[in-house]
Every structure is written in C-alpha cells, then in structure tokens.
Amino acid sequence: MRANRRRLVNWLGIVCGFGLLASLPLFLNDFLMTIAVVIGINVIIVFGLSLLMGYAGQISLGHAGLYGLGAYTSAVMSTKLHLDPWLTIVAGALLAGAAAYLIGLPALRLRGHYLAMATLGAGVIMQIMFVELSGITGGPAGISSIPNLKIGHLILDQTGAYFYVVLAAVAVSLWLSLNVVRSQKGRALRAMHGNELAAASIGVDTARAKLFIFTLSGVFAGLAGGLYAHYLTYISPDSFGTSLSILLVAMVVIGGSQSVVAAGLGAALLTVISEYFRTYQDWSLVFFGLSLVLVMIFAPRGLFVETAAVAKRLVARVVKRRGPVES
C-alpha cells in the first residue's frame, strides 16, 4: 500500500513538473527559452549517462562523439538525401546506439580508469572523423542549412515551439529511463553495482547488462544530437569535443548519478551556469574545475542527492518531535 502511494506521489510530482515546464514559454523571453531548449537536449544525454554511471557503475568520456554521430547522421540524411527530419532524427539515435554497442562490446570489458580512457579515445576519434570525412561531413566548416522540423505545414523554427518538441523527447526518455530503473532490470543493475560476483551468483549477465545500458545511453545521446542539429540548423565538429563529454559527465556527478532526476537537475544547473557565464568564460572554467574537485570530496553522491538526504533527515527529525504520524 505504502509503496503504491509513494509511486503515485512520484508520478504526480513528475506530471506537475512537466506541466510547469510546459508553461515556461509564457514567462521566459527568447534568450532564456534558448537556454531551456539546450538544457532539455543535455538532459536527454544525461539521463542515459546517469543510468550508465549511477546504475551500471561504468563511465564514458566519449558521449559527445555519440551525440555528434546522431547530429551528423540526421543532418546528412536530411540535407543530402532530403528525408523527413523526424525520420532522420530516429535514424541518428539508432545509429548512435549501434555505434555505442560496437564500442561497448570490447570496451566494457575494461574497468574504471581504463574504460574512461578507452571511451575518451573513441570520442576523440569520432570527432576527428567528423573533421576528416569532409566529403560527407563538410569538414571543419560543418553542415549548414539543415532543415527545420515540420508538423504538417507548421515549421518549427521558433524556439518556443521547438521547446515542446524537446520537452516531449525529455518526457519519453525519462519514461524509458524510469522503466528501466524501477523494474527488475534496475534491481539487477544495482545488484551488479553492489557486487559483480554476487550479481553473477543470482543469474545476472553482467556483461550484457552493461552493454544494454551503454547502448541505451548511445541512443539517448544520438536522439539529443538530432534535436540539436535541427534546432540550430547548423553543426560543426567543434560542438562534439572531449570538453563536452567531460561537461556531460560533470552534470551527472554534480547532480547525483544515482538518481535520474537529480542528474537531470545537474544538467540544468551546469547548462545555466555555463550559458550565463559565457562572457566570463575563462574565470568560470577555473571555478568549474575546482567545483568538480570539491563536489567529489564533500558531496560524492552529487549535490541534489546529498541535499535530498539532508532534507529527509530534517523532516524525519521534525516528524519524530511531533510524535508518530499515521502513514
């Protein structure tokens, strides 16, 4: 009973949250809406990365490459083959997932620092390919005039309208992520994260579980890449470098990798900070580096997860003082 009620509260919270988000265009100006769209795109990647890091216990420093792969696939297919962008975005997501599968197949045998380096290398190689395969990708200049998304005759070239597309994609990826987390799959992943030997002893195929999550996170990154390409209508290799991979991982750990929602909040926080400080970029990067170190030392589970834990303790203390409450 109690579990059911908690689930109801959780879903209510999520629905209300999305309702609030859906009304944002009423309050925010165009600049802030642009940031909101970028946040949404980052959040989608971060959902996948949080599954990978917080639940499967693996790391990737190459997700910007998969993000780029999604963006380039969709851009190339829609500009050169003149396919419908809705289809090409899906194609980009699937191709990025396939690439993640192929990278993960050998790389996930590695652990910790080795895996970090291997994925970093794979990401950089993908970025180099975006530059060097200039016949397809347009080289360093990239691809421009990428078509906008359309619904019937309505062209989604306004930030306000595009926001809803991104919001819908965020909702779908959150739904998928939560389906994984709040099921036997999530239990198996947590078991594996707890102890691989024990997980294997209860029948969890750890290699396959890791590969599944890595592939899923690739699909999310590719989806985000497609949404990015058709929003800006222009992409170049600079947007898909290692520094973005690192920023994405930072969003996950600063928010809290063991909760998809906390990681999403981390994405929002860091996107706002990095957009807001764009003009003072040099100084903000110093703080960014330092805050990564400080968060790891003082809040290793992530800001939002630690804050939630503190809040929970406080509530528990207040409830206790007021005497037991029937729940």
């Binding site: 890091m53 790391i59 910790g112 580096g289 330092l290 170190v293």
Partner: peptide, 28 residues
C-alpha cells in the same frame, strides 16, 4: 588524500577537475 576511500569514478572526475582548473589557471 581526501579522496582516500572514494570510488574510482570520483577520482577520475576529481583529476579531470584538477586538469581543467590547472589549464584555465595557466591561461589566466
């Protein structure tokens, strides 16, 4: 030293953070 008992992911992030800090510090 403060990360003596931390998970390897935390150490990866922390040394990445230091590299960003040192790099941009050098730039300043």
């Amino acid at each position: 030293l403060p990360l003596k008992n931390a998970a390897s992911i935390s150490l990866i992030i922390a040394t990445i953070g230091m590299s960003i800090f040192l790099r941009t510090g050098a730039m300043l």
